[in-house]
Computed example of a mutant assay.
Amino acid sequence: MRHVIFAAATAVIMAGQALASPDFWSREWPNTNFERSSVENWVEILSGGPPKDGIPAIDNPTFQNVADKTTVGAREPVITVEIGDDNRAYPIRYLTWHEIVNDTVGGVPVAVTFCPLCNSGITFDRRTRHGVLSFGVSGKLRNSDMIMYDRETESWWQQAVGEAIVGDLLGTELEQIPTWMESWAEFKARNPDGLVMAQPGYPRMYGANPYQNYDSSHRPFLYSGELPPHGIPALMRVVRVGDRAWPLSRFETATEISEAGVNLSWAPGQASALDSQDINAGRDVGTIRVRDAQGRDVAHDVMFAFAFHAFWPDGTWMIAR
């Protein structure tokens, strides 16, 4: 699978360069207002392969009690959303194939999102000044990051930054909710009475990684931008808090770092979702938690270094002193 995907990358990039214009995309997206856009270089917008909704977002997911879930491996990553007394786990084995889950947790309408090509797992509040939005997968990429769209206006949204980049809602920003990625075993131990998303009713190879060995590659898929500075590998994971990024190499000699007003901790036990074919057998990348001085969870993302550099070119790299 990986070899087929990557072999097609050059052809897709060349085609994207030839068709790079809002006029071209408007044929597929007649309801999107392309006169409103913050995209300066349309060459950056590429088709990832699937068409609009070819990767089906999940609406109104069903859940199981933690004790009843037997199909998720102990080391498999889940995105944990804890709002009030409502604690839910969204397994990456499902998000790899669906990328967006529209749900309501603790009374808050949320979009739980995961872009495999950037390893970016972010949860957004779906409430905006324009009303509560529902999101789908456009099938488009920018700097290898998923472009979402809202079903109400069909505006395009950049997943990594949570902002509308094309359409009537241009410039609208989604609030990022403090959530994190951890192993299924960690979630179960802390939330024995919690809920976990049930397997969606689609014919997918849930639990399998279609991007085998991706996070040990030298170059990202469908990305032609600048590589990170300071010799940081493009596909090294970094912890992004606002416009700052801590490379995970910092945790090779420490399990806790306190800088810039936040405390970052690392613990082993979580498998990479982008390593081996069997997600549960992936190499150990550990779990990151980010808290403030009062011990409260802080919104963050554990993404690849190239994606941070692409979307925060003037961001601060918190490299070892």
Score class of each variant (00 low, 15 high):
51 P>M: 04
297 D>G: 08
91 P>M: 01
118 C>V: 05
266 W>P: 00
192 P>S: 04
12 V>T: 14
65 N>W: 04
117 L>K: 12
187 F>L: 10
277 Q>C: 01
212 Q>L: 04
70 T>H: 14
298 V>Q: 04
168 D>W: 00
230 H>Q: 12
89 A>R: 00
65 N>S: 14
42 W>Q: 12
64 Q>K: 10
137 V>Q: 10
153 T>V: 08
102 N>H: 05
212 Q>G: 00
125 D>E: 13
36 R>Q: 15
57 A>R: 01
46 L>C: 12
127 R>G: 06
56 P>R: 13
272 S>E: 08
184 W>C: 00
93 R>V: 07
278 D>K: 11
88 R>D: 02
156 W>M: 13
28 E>L: 12
2 R>N: 07
22 P>C: 00
180 W>D: 01
238 V>M: 11
164 A>C: 13
249 S>M: 11
161 V>H: 04
52 K>D: 06
208 A>G: 04
13 I>K: 11
199 Q>E: 15
202 Y>W: 10
42 W>F: 09
199 Q>R: 15
314 D>C: 02
252 E>A: 08
17 Q>A: 09
223 Y>F: 15
282 G>N: 02
160 A>F: 14
136 G>T: 13
82 E>F: 01
52 K>Q: 14
231 G>Q: 11
212 Q>D: 02
260 A>N: 15
72 V>S: 01
169 L>T: 14
213 N>R: 12
268 P>T: 07
234 A>N: 04
283 R>N: 02
51 P>V: 08
317 W>Y: 09
123 T>K: 04
279 I>F: 05
55 I>R: 02
109 P>R: 03
78 V>F: 00
119 N>W: 01
44 E>F: 00
178 P>D: 01
68 D>Q: 13
204 R>C: 03
268 P>S: 06
161 V>I: 15
51 P>C: 01
174 L>G: 07
70 T>P: 02
184 W>N: 05
81 V>S: 01
169 L>Q: 08
64 Q>V: 05
185 A>G: 07
166 V>M: 06
294 Q>S: 14
